[in-house]
C-alpha cells in the first residue's frame, strides 16, 4: 500500500517533507471544517489548520508505523484547539456565545439552516467530552475505533457516550427531557 496516509506520513518522518503536501491536500479541508464547526470563526480556523500541519512536522518523529494517521491528525487538532484557548485565556462560554449567534448560510434553506443550528446550539449543552465525541462521530464522520484512539477511550465507552449524547441532543431540541 503505497498511497495510504500512513505511507506518506512515514515518508515524512524519513525526511521526505514534500509528502506532507499530499497529506495537506487530503486533510486540510476536513481539519478546517473541524475548527469552523467548533469556533464558527473562519480566520481563526485557517490559522489553527496551519498550526496543525506545523505541529505534524514538529512532532513527526513521534509518529509510529502502527498509528492511524486520521486519528493522529484529529488528536493534534483537538490539542491545538485546547491550547489556543489556554494561551489566549478564553473561556468556553465565549465560544458558546459565538455558537448561539445564528448566521444565515447562502446555500441552505431557512428550514435547514434552523435545523442544523438547533443541533449545534444543543451541542453546547453537552459535556466537553460528549461534544467532542458527537462532533467527531456525526460531523467529522470518524469511526468508533478512530475516536477511541483520539480520545484515549475504549470503543465501548465511545459507543455509550454517542448514545448518551444523541439522546441528550434530542431532549434539548424537542424539550423532551425526562
Amino acid at each position: 500500500m503505497t498511497n495510504t496516509d500512513n505511507h506518506y506520513m512515514l515518508s515524512v518522518t524519513k525526511g521526505n517533507l514534500n509528502d506532507l503536501a499530499i497529506l495537506f491536500d487530503r486533510y486540510h479541508e476536513r481539519i478546517y471544517n473541524y475548527f469552523v464547526n467548533k469556533s464558527h470563526n473562519v480566520a481563526l480556523s485557517q490559522d489553527l489548520t496551519q498550526t496543525v500541519f506545523e505541529r505534524i512536522l514538529k512532532y513527526k518523529d513521534s509518529y509510529k508505523e502502527d498509528y492511524l494517521f486520521k486519528a493522529w491528525i484529529y488528536r493534534i487538532a483537538s490539542n491545538v484547539y485546547m491550547d489556543h484557548f489556554r494561551q489566549n485565556k478564553l473561556k468556553w462560554s465565549d465560544i458558546e456565545q459565538i455558537r448561539e449567534i445564528p448566521d444565515q448560510e447562502e446555500n441552505t434553506t431557512g428550514e435547514q439552516n434552523e435545523q442544523y443550528h438547533q443541533v449545534l446550539y444543543a451541542m453546547n449543552k453537552l459535556s466537553k467530552t460528549d461534544q467532542e465525541i458527537i462532533q467527531l462521530s456525526k460531523i467529522e464522520n470518524l469511526k468508533i475505533k478512530e475516536i477511541a484512539e483520539i480520545l484515549d477511550l475504549s470503543e465501548s465507552a465511545v459507543k455509550v457516550k454517542i448514545h448518551r449524547g444523541i439522546k441528550r441532543l434530542k431532549d434539548i431540541i424537542f424539550n423532551t427531557k425526562q
Binding site: 486540510h28 479541508e29 478546517y32 471544517n33 469552523v36 464547526n37 473562519v42 480556523s45 485557517q46 489548520t49 448560510e105 446555500n107 441552505t108 435547514q112 435545523q115 442544523y116 438547533q118 443541533v119 449545534l120 456525526k138 460531523i139
Partner: peptide
C-alpha cells in the same frame, strides 16, 4: 441535522 451542516472550503 448533522448531514445538513455545510462543508466550507477554506480560502
Amino acid at each position: 441535522s448533522f448531514d445538513q451542516i455545510p462543508h466550507q472550503a477554506p480560502s
